[in-house]
Amino acid sequence: MKALTFSLLAEPEERLDLSALTPAGLAGLTDVQIAKLRIGTTRDPALVGDMFKVTGKDAQSIVFEGGSARFDKVGTGLSGGAIRVTGDVGLEAGRKMSGGSLLIDGSAGNHAGSGMVDGRLEIKGNAGDYLGGPLAGEITGMEGGLLIVRGKAGNYAGERLRRGIIAILKGCGDYAGYRMIAGSIVVAGRVGAMPGYLMKRGSLFLDRRPENLAPTFVDCGETDIAFSGVFDQFLIQEKIMDKPLLGTTPGKFGGDVAVSGKGEILFRRGR
């Protein structure tokens, strides 16, 4: 069966809430029912049929042909199957997803992977602020799964991460790993100010020494060589990296000691 495909007819005039267009949400719906789903968010909200030409039948595999920074909440609660967007997406891509895979060919807005529990979210372009982070008021961020950004991420990447892995391949903004509880964040490229501020546990893996680290991280010297090797292998196996990130003699900072934190920042030396 051909993937259920939503081809964008024109750039939307309003933000769209696409949270209903998931394999589980669309299972068993007829074409007519799908076309009548409301996705607009203004007083005069658009329906699926107003925005997309819908073809294909296989709701386990959903494709959005085209994209827009106004595509919000793509793949919300995704628990199985696959969704691919051939362009950009807006806010909260992969929000609370618990399985399956979500692939964004373009860039994502703020809060991509927010509240993610499991599954794989890959963004080929850049991601906005609060990658994997909690929405306003929530006190935990991502709780599991794999979140890969091939481009840059904004500020507060991995805020209050509790479990799972976030990999960012072209650098990120300030406060990466802010208030981290556990889990791992990998960053290749330049990291902004104050990575790991208020972190309790968990690990940040960097391909260079952080330039603007909070003074409440303490230098722990060299670290366990065997572990960094295993982690580098994992990154290569999962096709996240194509060469080792940390090398054989990474340096290590511990913190944030202001919160008696036992987190670690491991980084490649000599760059």
Binding site: M194, V218, A258
Partner: peptide
């Protein structure tokens, strides 16, 4: 205040210092 410390950094240093944590700044 501390040399070249932003306010969030200085607040961290104060908090750590009041707990008796040993840090360089």
């Amino acid at each position: 205040r501390g040399e070249v410390l932003s306010l969030p950094a200085a607040l961290g240093v104060l908090r750590a210092g009041l707990q008796g944590q040993r840090i360089a700044a």
